[in-house]
Amino acid sequence: MRDSKRLLSIFRNLSETRQQALLEYAAFLAGKEGAEIAAAPPTEPLPIPRPEQENVVKAIRRLMQTYPMLERNRIFHEASAQMTRHLIHGVAAVEVIDELEQIFARQYQQHLDALKQDLLSS
Rank of each mutant, 00 (worst) to 15 (best):
A35V: 04
L87R: 12
V94A: 13
I88R: 14
R74Q: 14
Y25Q: 08
S80Y: 12
R61A: 03
Q110A: 09
A79M: 06
G90S: 08
R85T: 00
F11Y: 15
R12P: 00
V56S: 01
E24G: 03
P45N: 07
P42F: 04
A38R: 08
R50F: 03
A93H: 03
R2F: 13
L115R: 15
F11C: 08
I88W: 03
F104D: 00
M1K: 12
L29S: 01
A92C: 06
I10R: 02
S80M: 08
D98H: 09
E54P: 02
P49R: 12
M83H: 00
Q102R: 09
R74M: 06
D98P: 03
L7M: 14
L23A: 10
A92L: 12
M69I: 09
Q102Y: 03
E71V: 03
A39L: 12
R72A: 12
D98K: 01
M1W: 13
L100C: 03
Q53G: 02
R74T: 11
Q117A: 15
T17M: 06
A38P: 04
H89M: 05
H86K: 10
R2I: 15
T84A: 01
E52S: 15
S80N: 09
T84W: 01
T17C: 02
Q102N: 07
K116F: 14
P41A: 13
F104W: 04
E52N: 09
Y108T: 06
V96P: 00
K5M: 10
I103Y: 02
D3F: 11
A26S: 11
F11A: 10
Q20R: 13
R62Q: 04
P47N: 15
T17L: 12
Q102V: 07
V91E: 07
E78Y: 03
V94P: 00
F28V: 00
S4D: 11
A79Q: 01
A114G: 13
L23C: 13
H89G: 02
Q107D: 06
V57Y: 11
L46C: 07
V91H: 06
K32G: 12
L23S: 09
A79E: 00
L119G: 14
R61P: 02
S4A: 09
D113M: 13
Q65M: 09
Q65A: 11
L23V: 09
I48W: 06
T17G: 13
R2Y: 14
F104V: 01
I97E: 00
Q110T: 02
F11K: 00
P42Y: 10
F28D: 10
V94E: 14
R74S: 15
S15P: 11
V94I: 08
